[in-house]
Design a protein around this nucleic acid. Structure first.
Length: 466
RNA sequence: GGCGACCUGGCGAAGUGGGAACGCAUCGGUCUGCAAAACCGACAUGAACCGGUUCGACUCCGGUGGUCGCCUCCA
């Protein structure tokens, strides 16, 4: 079985097929850089990064492109409010976006084109559309002639005749038409030369141009947040397919929104939590696990409680990894058949879930079932070293497919500071003296230093609290 | 007003026309000086509500109620 993804275009699960060059091309719409990104913006970044990861781990070649919109009205507005050039603001926010997403440790996309770096492609595409009468110049602007593109509305299942309250504009032939090029206006501090005069691209044309440039027409997966279906992706289809009479993207994959107290998290509502703050507080693994425990097409509540759950889930996995490492220091010589079976079953369930529309919750469940099997086995005895290695490798491989392999780094107690080790020694002495009140106080002192103590048959274990 | 989605245990969250995963939380037990971790056990005779189809529905169809999203910048 191969990976199938629900496509917004067909409403059904469609098999993911490589492009003509054997590579699975994935384009996801990235942020507009006028402020730091919030945890909701991070969802598509995580989803599409893990999608690429999963495909690669399954032996496919994949190319992920996530653009950066660095020319936009909001950028002009924000820069004006700060009293700095809009290009400075865009550059700063682009750097912050890179820094913030780097905190997740999921790697970078293969390409992250900037709108400002694709101006020639954009102008050429607009010129094509004008040439084909799918677009027209008016004043210093250029508009797409929506009624001239017959498939308009297919992606969002919308009839152009049903659309109301559309901005009539002064220069449009039809209120439905949307801007491909906007002539420079008073107060805008950057513009580019074009056959229609100085100006800048409209919001939608950039993605058509960048996707075509990076992946060609007819690539595998185009995605982003579900709020982009209309008008952004609808317009991209109109632009690209209008210009080339060829299919643009085969599968349209959209992630649902995060919600905060029953409404979506949105910069315009103001109920946001910055990605950097969330990662700073909880750690990258917890944030990734938080996303992976829910399906990308489900709305996901964002709250401390949800993050706490994810943290507890990470702790459980880390504990099992630590138990494996401990067992490996003193392995047995038998093979645990039940454990061996659990390993096979976990892989099967994991892959089945993932291949069925990127079912990361089922994949996480498969990992937890393996974790339980590991704990049960170690409760029964000590499997042989070879089997322990094999189990460790498999757990690590499954976690890695979700970007969670760091949970295997259980944090050996070799880096424990001397003062903590000293506290441990004093506590052992207190216990030997049956001074349990003193021992408990010392344990609290150790915890305050960031280390958890677990007494076992082989003496106390010192474990860093993440 | 138009279009669409969703409604599963305390909180989250999957899958499925015929045994309701998984995580967290809670309760009891094992282990421990006590904890922690781990293990064992308990925890929705029922899936918003009402009808229908079916031998059989949480799963399909229809209706009611509720929640949310898009239609304008938005991941």
């Amino acid at each position: 079985m191969t990976l199938r993804l629900h496509s917004t275009l067909t409403g059904q699960a469609e098999p993911v097929q490589p492009d003509a060059d054997g590579v699975i091309g994935i384009y996801a719409c990235g942020p507009t850089v006028y402020s730091r990104i919030h945890i909701g913006n991070a969802r598509p970044f995580v989803v599409f990064s893990v999608l690429k990861r999963y495909l690669e781990r399954r032996g496919h070649r994949a190319r992920l492109v996530i653009n950066v919109t660095d020319v936009n009205d909001k950028i002009y507005d924000a820069a004006r409010a700060e009293g700095i050039p809009s290009t400075d603001l865009a550059e700063r926010c682009t750097r912050q976006y890179i820094d913030d997403t780097d905190l997740l440790g999921l790697g970078r996309p293969d390409a992250e084109p900037l709108v400002t770096g694709c101006m020639d492609d954009i102008i050429a595409l607009i010129a094509d559309l004008v040439e084909r009468d799918l677009a027209y110049a008016a004043g210093g602007d250029v508009y797409f002639r929506v009624r001239a593109f017959p498939g308009y509305g297919r992606l969002s299942r919308r009839d152009p005749d049903d659309m109301v309250d559309t901005d009539p504009g002064d220069l449009k032939e039809d209120p439905l038409d949307f801007a491909l090029w906007k002539g420079v206006k008073e107060g805008e501090d950057v513009s580019w030369e074009s056959p229609w005069g100085p100006g800048r691209p409209g919001w939608h044309i950039e993605c058509s141009a960048m996707a075509e440039r990076e992946l060609g027409m007819g690539f595998s997966v185009h995605g982003g947040g579900i709020d982009l279906v209309f008008p952004h992706h609808e317009n991209e289809i109109a632009q690209s397919e209008g210009a080339h009479d060829a299919p643009f993207a085969r599968i349209w994959m959209h992630n649902e929104m995060l919600e905060l107290s029953d409404s979506k998290m949105s910069k315009s509502i103001g109920n946001i939590a910055l990605l950097a703050d969330v990662v700073q507080r909880w750690g990258a693994d917890v944030v990734i696990a938080y996303f992976m425990q829910s399906h990308y097409r489900s709305r996901l509540p964002f709250s401390d409680e949800r993050l706490q759950d994810a943290e507890a889930a990470c702790r459980r996995i880390r504990n099992a990894a630590r138990a494996l490492d401990k067992a490996l220091m003193d392995p047995g010589d038998s093979v645990d058949a039940a454990l061996a079976a659990a390993v096979v079953q976990a892989r099967t369930r994991f892959v089945d879930s993932m291949d069925d529309d990127f079912g990361t919750p089922g994949a996480m469940a498969a990992i937890f079932e393996l974790v339980r099997a590991i704990n049960q086995s170690l409760e029964r005895g000590r499997p042989a070293e070879g089997q322990l290695q094999e189990v460790r490798l498999e757990l690590s491989a499954l976690l890695d497919m979700l970007g969670l392999a760091r949970l295997m780094d259980a944090g050996a107690d070799d880096a424990v500071p001397d003062e903590v080790l000293d506290l441990v020694r004093r506590r052992e002495q207190a216990r030997a003296d049956r001074d349990f009140a003193g021992a408990d106080a010392l344990r609290d002192a150790i915890l305050a230093q960031g280390y958890e103590l677990r007494d076992g048959p082989d003496g106390p274990e010192v474990i860093p609290t993440p």
